[in-house]
Design a protein around this nucleic acid. Structure first.
Lengths: 124, 124
DNA sequence: CCGTATCCTACGGGATACTG
DNA sequence: CAGTATCCCGTAGGATACGG
């Protein structure tokens, strides 16, 4: 018997929520390259608002996927880094990238075929 | 160099959108068990509205992940099944489930620790 | 520099009623 | 049975201004 993915609070679903969150994934990918400061992340991840960046970072920190280190200096300096758990999650994301690269052409071909068919029907 | 996940239209991002879509994942998981009719899916996937179910099915069909077979009988009968591509995607989802099961305890422990800390601060 | 606080809008998606 | 069509609402999240 499978884990019950039909229930919203099962582990798989919680993971899916994370993976499905674009900003979370982007942060993880960026931090996989190494430690980054808040502003570096903001600059690197184009289009993210301070609100969403903070929210995302807090969520990842809460889940034990990243660490947040405050250096008590002026001006303030805050470093974010992937934990071991975070790295293992990143491995998953790499797996997704691999799949996407391998199969994206099939998907695009399918879309083209599908759209052509639909258009054929609506055109007649 | 990594694929540029920072661009919204890169393959990885398109896959992420699918994986992040709860209904799509549930449909794929359900169809992994075998062919299902529309109503069967609706019943199996609790809480899904006809609108979302149809929308999800169309999207998956367009991407070549499932097939839709209409039997010209009365009353109508429509079968949905996973394609080969769909099965390979399901393999990915199984990988996610595996990760979730393996690491969920770490995540929950991290959350508990984080919440305890936050509460300690706001309580003082 | 590293965030919070506030406002505001678009739109995802639920509920429902209806049709071929 | 297998969907469409319509209405409607909550809320995710963008923009912005400000604070420690």
């Amino acid at each position: 018997m499978q884990p019950n993915v039909y229930e919203a609070n099962c582990p798989s679903r919680q993971l899916l929520d994370r993976i499905g969150d674009t900003w979370s994934v982007l942060v993880v990918v960026t931090l996989a390259e190494g430690i980054h400061r808040y502003t570096e992340l903001a600059k690197r991840i184009e289009g993210v608002s301070p609100k969403m960046l903070t929210q995302t970072l807090r969520g990842l920190e809460r889940d034990g996927l990243i660490t947040r280190t405050v250096h008590p200096v002026v001006p303030p300096r805050v470093d974010y880094a992937l934990t071991e758990l975070g790295h293992s999650l990143y491995a998953l994301v790499e797996g997704l990238e691999k799949w996407a690269e391998t199969h994206i052409e099939d998907v695009q071909a399918a879309r083209a075929a599908y759209d052509a068919t639909v258009q054929a029907y609506s055109a007649k």
